[in-house]
Design a protein around this nucleic acid. Sequence first.
DNA 1: CTGATATCAGTTGTACTGATATAT
DNA 2: CATATATCAGTACAACTGATATCA
Lengths: 147, 147
Amino acid sequence: MEPSTEASRLARLPSRLLSRAALVASRHVTQALEGVGGHRYDFAVLATLDEFGPLSQSELCRRCGMDRSDMTAVVSALADEGHVSRTPDADDRRRKVVRLEPAGRRRLEVLEQAIEGAQQQLLEGSSPDDRDRLVALLTPLAARADQ
Amino acid sequence: MEPSTEASRLARLPSRLLSRAALVASRHVTQALEGVGGHRYDFAVLATLDEFGPLSQSELCRRCGMDRSDMTAVVSALADEGHVSRTPDADDRRRKVVRLEPAGRRRLEVLEQAIEGAQQQLLEGSSPDDRDRLVALLTPLAARADQ
DNA sequence: CTGATATCAGTTGTACTGATATAT
DNA sequence: CATATATCAGTACAACTGATATCA
């Protein structure tokens, strides 16, 4: 006989589970960031700059997996707030070099705490091992998101 | 020293991995369904009717995890195509009972093949055990998508 | 009355396309 | 000229909100 935990074909589809789990995750993250007046794009840009140092906007797009059309507004807002600076590249003046400023680093810490809180909410009920396994299984799939 | 496989904080965030893996999955599914002139909503509705039998639209919304606002148009289109019938419930005439018709069952088979092809594309490089593990890890997260 | 159901109109957020200006 | 970068306007889609009509 079928075990009672046997889920329907629809409920076992990896693509469907991914989209619904991502929706849950997105709600947690959005809510956590709203609590500190932030946005996922801000976090992605600040964290990437913190990790890789100053980058051109197009390089930022690549590293963050963001679209060029969305990057402009995000960087402009972060620059207005003093979290990043945006200066023409001396070597290639088509480029604008985006650099993390001290205020941006402090801002990143706040966003990072909110984000980690959201991960824990999302994964409450999952063991640390489960989190590691999930990350390991998702990494090769997520890697194909860029192009 | 850090192992070379050590990914950045950003790249290891479960919420981010989920959203990017879901994006990859969604592109595969959308493309596969486009190939047969279908849509994910059609598949969800037809598969749910096939599995649970005739349902009211609101019950369909619950089972599919779809919004009531989106369900109306989907059911109308499926009814126009003869894949489902929509008749007033004899017991409760506020309800419309949606029933899978033979043409809808044949349509479901086509969509199902496309969807399963998309899963295999998505998971190429993952073992069958990996697929099972992924499903097991995602199921409790995805379950929270409804409300 | 209330509560549930179905429908319709419209909003938001994310991903994305196409066109343009500018500089190499 | 071609190529890369940044910007702007606007599209496509899924998820969602609010209002309304219907009827038990």
